[in-house]
Simulated scan of single mutants.
Amino acid sequence: MSKGFYLYGILTEPLPESIKLEGMDKLQVYSHKIDIFNFLYSEAKQEKYLTSRRNLLCHEKVLEDAMKEGFRTLIPLRFGLAIKTWETVSEQLTIPYKEKLLELFDKLDGRREVSVKVLWNNNSEIQALLASNPTLKEKRDAMEGRAMSMDGVIEIGQMIESGLQARKEEVIDLFRDELNALAEEVIESDTMTEEMIYNAAYLIPWDSESQFGEKVEAIDLKFGDRLRIRYNNFTAPYTFAQLS
C-alpha cells in the first residue's frame, strides 16, 4: 500500500511518459507539476527510508539518469524526502520559496557541478619532508633510542606538522591556480578523512567539462603517484542548489 510520494528533485519541464526511470523500491519515476515546478517522484512504500548505500545510490541515479535524458537543469532534493500529500510541498516549499527556487534554476541553467577530492599518504609525505630537511631529520632521528624532554618532543612534532602544512598548501594552491579560473563558482568543503587534503566543488559551463577534465588530468600527471585525485564529472548539483 502506498505511503505517499518519494521526491528526488525538481525539473523545469515535465518528464515525458516515454522516459522510464527506476526509483526507490524499483518503482517507476514520474513528474508532478505544482505551479511552474515539476517534481520527480515515485510512490513511497515506506514512511521513512533507511540511509543505506543502496538507497543513496538509487536516489542519485534517478537524478543522473534524468540529466542523461537531457534535463540538464534540475534542483536535487535531499535524500529521504517522503511526503503524504502534494499540499505539503506547496505549503512548505513552492509557496514560501518560489522566488529562491527560480533564482536557483537561473543560476544552474547551462551549468553543471564537478568535484575534486585530493588524497595523499601522510607517512610518505613525512618521509619526503625529512629527506628535504636534513636538520629536521637529524632532530627526529635523535629522538629514537634515547629519552627526550616533553618540550623537545613537542618542538619536533610541531616542526613536522608545520612542514606538512606547507607542503599541503603548496599542493592546494596549484589546484586553485589551475582550476578556479575555469569555474563560475567554487565551494571548498571540509575534508572527510585523515589522508584527504582538499575537497572542492566547481560550477562550470555544461559544455566546458572536457577542458576542465583535461586540466585535472594534467595536474594528476604532474604529481604522479604522490596524490590520488578523485574527479567526479557528472553529478546532480547538490553543492550549488542550497536554499539560503
Results as ranks from 00 to 15, higher is better:
K3H: 14
L7Q: 04
L7K: 02
L7P: 04
L7V: 05
I10Y: 08
L11D: 00
E13G: 05
E13C: 03
P14N: 11
L15S: 04
P16C: 00
P16R: 00
S18V: 06
I19P: 06
K20H: 10
L21V: 06
Q28S: 13
H32L: 01
H32T: 12
F39L: 03
L40N: 06
Y41I: 04
E43K: 06
E43L: 14
K45S: 03
K48I: 10
L50W: 10
S52W: 07
N55R: 05
N55K: 06
N55G: 14
L57P: 02
H59F: 06
H59W: 08
G70L: 07
F71D: 05
F71M: 04
L77Q: 02
V89Y: 11
S90Y: 10
S90E: 14
E91Y: 10
E103F: 00
F105T: 08
F105P: 03
K107W: 10
D109W: 05
G110A: 08
R111E: 02
V114S: 00
V118G: 09
L119P: 02
W120R: 12
N122L: 14
N123Y: 01
S124R: 15
E125S: 08
E125K: 07
Q127P: 00
Q127H: 01
Q127D: 03
A131I: 07
S132I: 05
N133V: 06
P134N: 02
L136E: 00
K137Q: 15
D141G: 12
D141Q: 14
M143A: 11
E144V: 13
D151C: 00
G157L: 00
M159G: 02
I160K: 01
I160V: 15
K168T: 00
E170F: 07
E170T: 15
E178P: 01
E178R: 15
A181C: 12
E185Y: 00
E185F: 08
V186R: 02
S189F: 15
D190W: 10
M192A: 13
T193H: 05
I197R: 10
S208Y: 05
S208R: 10
E209S: 08
E214P: 07
I219W: 01
R228F: 10
F234E: 05
F234N: 12
P237I: 08
F240N: 04
Q242R: 07
L243W: 04
S244E: 15
